[in-house]
Amino acid sequence: MKILVCISKTPDTTSKIAFDSSNKKFVEDGVQFIMNPYDEWYALVRGLELKEQLGGQVDVIHVGDQNSESIIRKALAIGADAAIRIDHTPVDSFDTASQIAEIAKSRGYDLIFLGKETLDHNGSEVGGLVAGLLDWPYIAYASKLTQQNDTAIIESELEGGVRVIECKVPFVMSCAKGIAEQRIPNMMGIMNSKKKPLEVISPIASEAKIEIEKFELPSGKASVKMLSPDNIDELVDVFKNELKIL
């Protein structure tokens, strides 16, 4: 199996979220970026497990500038064989997907794995866009994958349950909780990652299909109204009169 895993960066969860004075740009100063957890814990690890089961190769791809190299090296330390970085700051997810699809077209991958979404953008957009551009089937939010030769059985999200689907390679799949367990890179992995190939490729031309008007921080909550634990009818009144759920 030749597997391509797409990795993105995202601000560490404890990062302060702030925007510039035009409110059109996220201020990255002092923000610690990490590999998007869904890509690291689920897409990458499931890719590595498949390689261990069936043989083959796992490549990671990232669309971004040089500052992302530590994230790419981490993916190599966890076990990916080689990395590709498209040297480009994407303008939107269509752009990201076009860059990835362009590479995937000519390199004979059987599978492309992604995370279910990036935590900063909260989009779930790139996976289906890549699939659509390549004309491959797409399965979103997979929580289990069993692969026999070229046939996969996948469990994916369905409201209140799961859908079990059969599909043949090639396909694109976005990964959610359940599909794999996080792996921590070991010393050997970290040492080896420095010797693994990291190819830097120029982007194809792109133009933005969506435009940011503004970012906004939520207006703070009016302060909490504390009710007495000794007079529970107060809460029942809130349920009844203010929340109207009784």
């Binding site: 979220i17 299909k209 969506i210 435009e211 940011i212 008007e213 503004k214 970012f215 906004e216």
Partner: peptide, 8 residues
């Protein structure tokens, strides 16, 4: 945060 976009 929220983001508002237009689609040209």
């Amino acid at each position: 945060a929220t983001a508002t976009y237009s689609i040209p």
